[in-house]
Amino acid sequence: MNIIKFLDEFTTEKLISDTTSRREIFGTFGSLGKKAALAAIPFGLATMPSRTYAQSSGDPVSALQLALTLEYLEDEFYELALQSGVIPSGRSQIVYQQISQHEAAHVEFLKAGLQGAGVTPVEKPTFDFTAGGAFDPFNDSGVGQEAAYAQLLALSQAFEDTGVRAYKGQAGNLQGSQFLTPALQIHSVEARHASEIRRLRGLNGWITRDQRGLGMPEATQPVYNGEENVIQGGVNVTNLGDGSPFTIDASTQAYDEILTGDEAVAIASLFIVP
């Protein structure tokens, strides 16, 4: 299946129509996060239609195809990053090599899983990690080693934090399928990556409120919108007690939020050549 066709079908709200230009996609990207689902989930769930929160397509195949698309993106990004000569030797090189191996393994794992289920894996798209010229993470256009490295790290952070949230958003679609546990196992690996990349950038490993963090381009804000949620299972976790564990900062750090499939697609689409 063609990647764009797949993404288009996945995007139930038709966020990216055939006529949408890349510039308009940026606009969509910017406004999407504002409607990030902050649905409260009461624990007395009998009173609540269960579909109001869980991602609603209930289709494990679509969830895996979306996951594969995101893994294609990460895999190619890390491979190009390692080839670019932009990454300094030492810790950064070691970190990028380890992550790159994992992303490559995830691509193969998901492809095999889909094929094993009798489904043709979505094709690998053509990526543009400059996002139409907005970035130069591999120093291809000569932005300079230092600036390129900063952009490369920033994009890594955005991709990893997106990956964590996107997998989490698909958990409901994978429930009851054999793919749930492996998807959770990938999800936590993405979180390990995200933490280390953030720490490489001098940030905490976790997300505070909806802050994208120092030095992150504003275009990455949709990755963080919605992370300021403090209502978990219908409980405002800032009201559970007193002291430092219940500040808004701590209460938002302690829980990562989901991205819906639509939101994840909108972010990934920035880097996919139509």
Binding site: I41, L45, M48, S50, Y53, A54, V164, Y167, K168, A171, G172, Q175, L184, H187, S188, V189, E190, A191, R192, S195, W206, Q232, G233, Q253, A254, Y255, D256, E257, I258
Partner: peptide, 15 residues
Amino acid sequence: PDYLVLAGKIVSVEA
């Protein structure tokens, strides 16, 4: 499914 998502919100922070 709501508990599953909640567990997911926590496990990634543990990771």
